[in-house]
Design a protein around this nucleic acid. Structure first.
Lengths: 138, 138
DNA sequence: ACTGCACCCTGTAGCCACTACAGGGTCAAG
DNA sequence: CTTGACCCTGTAGTGGCTACAGGGTGCAGT
């Protein structure tokens, strides 16, 4: 039993990817079009399983499709320096850092606003007041 | 000079919203269709300026369109309790909190992975290794 | 009166990364 | 030989815009 053939459903379960998503990855060229069975079913092997697992892990880490494309292509050039890979990862880390600090600032404003809410009527609600332009709040 | 009439471009500048976005808000019913001039230009007044400012502030705080719809409708019922408003805001705060903690966890994994990178060749790159399924990394 | 330009109009398509059908075909178990 | 789980293609929808294309309007300068 060498490298069983996987249907799209098997591959889906094995990688935790929805069937539609796998077909989507094929459509956008992230996965190559696989061999087909007599009944026109997609037939996947270990190679595709590996590639899809890689993609999923990278997605979980928040990499974008184009970044993953680059990572995949770089990962095949084993003897090259991994400088380019490092750069993609660092760029992404910076992106995540920026996103976190944006959200933390937003959270502060939101939290403060909610804290100030008097639990009274809408007319005196500080949340609405915070959103309303000056002098429009009556 | 009582409440000058604003063109869509004026409203755009006054609120920092792109013209296309204003038209989009109209299309989805977040802004009412305004009066028109003889030449079929949209003619806005203070009311719309106020409403759009409100929407923009809420968007900056990350509220979704449907939440803003609810906030706008609630904000008109001045004598009601602001409980429902408080709830929307709290729900959104929770959402933001969850997003932050997800991103912080992700950041940790990413950061650790990058730290481990030996700056050698792709074959020994820890970033690629972290993404590769077990036993696929050679 | 004419020209040029900035602005406005509608309608449609694109972005990201999927997700969700509709309307059919295939395959294995009972 | 039927049932039901799976598979196929193709298209449209999600959120919240953004970007055209292909036209019309308004006003300042000449």
């Amino acid at each position: 039993m060498r490298s069983a053939v996987l249907t799209i459903g098997n591959l889906s379960k094995a990688t935790g990817t929805k069937v539609e998503t796998i077909r989507y990855y094929e459509r956008i060229g992230l996965l190559a079009a696989p061999a087909r069975t007599a009944g026109n079913y997609r037939a996947y092997g270990k190679t595709e399983l590996g590639r899809l697992s890689f993609i999923r892990r990278a997605r979980e880490l928040g990499f974008g499709i184009d970044q993953i494309r680059a990572l995949l292509s770089l990962s095949e050039k084993k003897r090259r320096s991994c400088k380019a890979i490092d750069e993609i990862a660092r760029e992404h880390l910076e992106h995540v850092d920026r996103k976190i600090s944006d959200l933390v600032m937003l959270r502060e404003v939101l939290h403060t606003t909610i804290q100030e809410c008097s639990r009274g009527t809408v007319a005196t609600c500080r949340i609405i007041e915070a959103l309303s332009p000056v002098g429009q709040n009556r």
